[in-house]
């Protein structure tokens, strides 16, 4: 059980690393585009498209990590003004609600990806990327979010939202 818990946290960390990698990748791709266009008169056909995919990835793959580090902005008006018992109840409740969203997001995201694959939808650009590839970032991120909220529930009634940035 403990090992499983550790592995789960590792998986979420891998998501965070990938998210960070995507942001840095975007930066350098766009910088490359500027240099290539301005100084070599050779604009690329792929930077805009890949940047968008990378940023979508950076959000959904990094979101679970933000949950685990209490980085999602939370209103702590009520939480800070109730006793510890109520605070614990609220923590369970809000994490359970987060899990509900994550499950719906993952389940319907997965179905959506399957449908896109079945219809053979591609991007409308020169690259003709099969759209199920970037779209798969949603259910993958969704799975990470499910894991994160389950772990928050296992951790119990800790409610640390609001203070972190």
């Amino acid at each position: 059980m403990k090992a499983l818990y550790r592995i789960a946290d590792q998986v979420i960390n891998i998501g965070a690393y990938l998210a960070g990698f995507f942001i840095i990748l975007t930066t350098f791709m766009i910088f490359y585009e500027i240099v290539s266009r301005e100084f070599f008169n050779q604009p690329t056909i792929w930077v805009t498209e890949f940047s968008i995919y990378a940023i979508i990835g950076s959000c959904f793959l990094g979101s679970a990590y933000a949950v685990r580090t209490y980085s999602h902005i939370t209103v702590d008006l009520l939480i800070n003004n109730v006793n510890d018992q109520i605070k614990t109840v609220l923590a369970y409740l809000s994490n359970a609600l987060g899990l509900v969203f994550s499950i719906i997001f993952t389940f319907y995201g997965f179905h959506h990806v399957m449908k896109t694959m079945e219809l053979g939808i591609t991007s409308a650009s020169l690259l003709r990327i099969p759209m199920y590839i970037p779209e798969a970032l949603l259910p993958i991120g969704g799975v990470l979010l499910c894991i994160a909220f389950i772990m928050q529930i296992i951790d119990g009634g800790v409610h640390k939202g609001g203070e972190h940035l």
Binding site: I23, A54, I55, I56, I104, F105, H111, P134
Partner: peptide, 22 residues
């Protein structure tokens, strides 16, 4: 709910948003 992934994807499917993370 079938619209949830479509709208979630669309929300970030915009090149001008790439400046935000940077």
């Amino acid at each position: 709910f079938a619209q949830v992934p479509i709208i979630s994807y669309k929300s970030l499917d915009d090149f001008s948003l790439t400046s935000l993370p940077m």
